[in-house]
Design a protein around this nucleic acid. Structure first.
Lengths: 214, 214
DNA sequence: TCAGATATTGACCGATTGGTCGAGCGCTGT
DNA sequence: ACAGCGCTCGACCAATCGGTCAATATCTGA
């Protein structure tokens, strides 16, 4: 058995995974045939079954790898320090940039989440979500305890709002580009800058107004 | 030819469309077989081809109907008057409620938007988006010109933020429910109330602070 | 050099796919 | 009663699906 040939042995696997990832990110599970994957990978269909027992296992492996990559990719975003306000700005910008840098991974994982009929690995696909979410909540809570942010709002709600804004931007970018009044479709940094600015004006304690609540 | 049998004539069509809508909203295009649609509709597969020339045409018809229904459903939301702040609150709440009331339609249209590989009717699916978006932008602009809202923000950006928050909530509701810190997963009204509140505190001109910008 | 894994392949399998066809069904006007 | 017509169906088609298998090519260690 090889001690380090693992790196070379995995070359065939990796090629298949890459091809499958590309195809699965564009089209749904049933819309991607094993033949198409083999063709994309430049190998024979039967060869795929040497590395993976069946289509589901291959899809799961692709999803696992994508989720892992996306997870580490997003985890790097969280590493920031300084004033909470600056951390938020950095977080929003890097998070959206991470999504835009690896659109295949995001689409892959997100499609799995949206699929209601066949929950192949939903709880698995949710992992990447959990990390970045809890990290963002932690940042907000730290800001609250430090007095840099108001305390009368739900951190989880704001985290959802910010993450949702980025995910929504990522998803509907092509649509947004068609609308005349939208100028930020191709300026993700500007988009996030504007969004964070709007959020902060409502989150910073100095702005103590007494608007009627619900 | 029938003069009013049109209502009865469409019964077969309608049954097929309903069955197809249900299945297409849960699973992707290729994951839904004509046989399954026929089974769901309680008719024979061959009968479908009496009403629709092929699967694509049926899918297109389903998408057309869904988009139309969703469009009118969302258009009712816009009809509000009074202070811009109140209109926004009402808009957010009703918009999210509309999404949650007809999850099949939303999932159907949104899946078509996300599909990159086979743009069957993307520009068609975008229609429902255009209306509600421009309506929301109009509301915000009106608020700006009336002096009820700040003028130093992009209405289109805020509209994207608000719509994105609702769509994101709709999409990832099941995920959000799994996280302990989240208490609003089953309280869409509370969610929107909180979000609008956060947004308003930053949009209302009275809160004129001078935070350093980008 | 040669045995034994490991990779890789084309040919093949049963099942299912989207789609067709012709024969009946039931209704309506005459 | 009968002709016509919209409607419905089972049977069938070629193509493709996921998956198997035996044969071969390639590589490795001794």
């Amino acid at each position: 058995m090889g001690d380090l040939p693992l790196a070379i042995e995995g070359e065939g696997r990796q090629r298949i995974l890459a091809a499958a990832e590309k195809l699965f990110s564009d089209k749904a599970f049933d819309a991607v045939s094993m033949n198409a994957i083999a063709l994309q990978a430049g190998i024979s269909k039967a060869n795929i079954y040497h590395y993976f027992p069946n289509k589901d296992a291959l899809y799961l492996a692709v999803l696992r790898a994508a989720s892992h990559n996306l997870r580490t990719l997003l985890n790097d975003v969280v590493n920031a320090h300084g004033a909470v306000v600056e951390v938020l700005r950095h977080f929003a910008r890097c998070h959206l940039q991470a999504l835009l840098d690896r659109p295949e991974l995001v689409r892959l994982v997100w499609r799995e989440i949206l699929e209601k009929g066949a929950p192949r690995a939903q709880e698995f696909a949710e992992q990447g979500f959990a990390d970045v979410f809890s990290a963002l909540v932690a940042v907000l809570e730290a800001g609250q305890s430090r007095g840099e942010l108001r305390v009368d709002f739900d951190p989880a709600l704001v985290a959802t709002l910010l993450l949702g804004a980025n995910v929504f931007f990522f998803q509907s970018r092509d649509i947004l580009r068609h609308y005349p009044p939208i100028t930020f479709a191709d300026d993700p940094a500007g988009y996030d800058a504007g969004i964070v600015e709007i959020l902060l004006r409502g989150l910073i304690p100095e702005s103590s107004i007494d608007t009627a609540s619900t």
